[in-house]
């Protein structure tokens, strides 16, 4: 709040009303509902429900399918996060360095941000097409018989590749803007103090980029866990079968297609707890994070 704020009783209430109404109806109500349903067993035909305590959770924890999805989510998230972050960092450092064509490179490297995840998935389907996909053909040169949708590993590979491709631009934008906000004087001082460009990068640039990098780390984990739904759904053509899937996709498959509302709600609650833990971790890190200004 500003020091000299306005004083009025009804005006701020009116201003807050739309926001509060929307989140009460479409955020808190559903969230509470999910919490509640996670303790109930719903009749699949919508007739009544029974309180079952924690049994939805225990059956989750003992389910082999769930733990497979959980482990896949962990690997998927790690690879997508670090893959897209490192490619984006490399490109941002180079784009920040070159003098000619810097603007053109920036445009060329960022526009994919606007491509919807499922469209990225469709593009993936072309690239890995069974009969003539360019990447499939390329891998065949090395004797890799790529089978999208049939082979578990190959399908996971395609999902990861498309997810990284879709996420590099946004990371690139943030890294580039982080690099450009490093004061010129600091760069010049580093230029005088350190002869090696690699040394300068690791000693000066990288630590100064750490706050941006940390912010992106959290953003990317959230992206990989949630926003890749569209990629996965299109790559799997809506037919999960025995293919890899992430936890969010499983919530959807079990709850919306399988009509297991209790189990799916329990999964939602587990995800909520995961996200909350991640956020608490983020806030604690931000509190500790060093401000260089």
């Amino acid at each position: 709040m500003k020091r000299a704020g306005f004083t009025s009783a009804w005006l701020p209430a009116m201003l807050l009303l739309p926001q509060l109404a929307v989140i009460a109806i479409f955020f808190y109500w559903p969230a509470a509902h999910a919490l509640r349903s996670s303790f109930y067993l719903q009749d699949p035909f919508g007739f009544g429900e029974t309180f079952v305590g924690l049994s939805n959770f225990t059956s989750l924890l003992t389910s082999a399918a769930y733990s497979r999805a959980a482990w896949f989510t962990v690997f998927f998230t790690l690879i997508v996060t670090f893959g897209s972050l490192s490619i984006a960092l490399l490109l941002a450092v180079k784009a920040d360095k070159v003098i000619r064509g810097a603007k053109t490179y920036r445009t060329l490297l960022m526009w994919v941000y606007a491509v919807a995840p499922p469209v990225a998935g469709v593009i993936g389907l072309i690239m890995f097409n069974q009969s003539w996909g360019p990447l499939k053909e390329f891998f065949a040169l090395f004797g890799w018989d790529f089978k999208l949708g049939v082979n578990y590993f190959d399908t996971a590979f395609a999902m990861i590749a498309v997810s990284i491709w879709k996420q590099v631009p946004v990371n690139f934008i943030f890294f580039l803007s982080g690099l450009q906000s490093i004061p010129k004087s600091v760069r010049e001082a580093a230029l005088i103090d350190n002869r090696s460009a690699t040394g300068r990068f690791w000693d000066i640039t990288f630590p100064l980029l750490a706050p941006t990098g940390f912010f992106l780390l959290i953003t990317n984990i959230t992206y990989a866990m949630f926003d890749t739904f569209g990629v996965i759904d299109t790559v799997l053509k809506g037919q999960p079968g025995n293919n890899p899937m992430t936890l969010v996709y499983k919530v959807y498959v079990d709850g919306f297609r399988g009509n297991d509302l209790g189990g799916s709600s329990a999964q939602s609650v587990v995800l909520m707890v995961l996200v909350l833990a991640l956020t608490v971790f983020q806030f604690r890190m931000i509190e500790r994070r060093i401000h260089y200004t």
């Binding site: 509902h33 959230t222 949630f226 926003d227 709850g255 799916s264 709600s265 939602s268 909520m272 996200v275």
Partner: peptide
């Protein structure tokens, strides 16, 4: 909490 985690409710 992103919409995705509370999608069904």
């Amino acid at each position: 909490l992103p919409l995705e985690v509370r999608i069904l409710p």
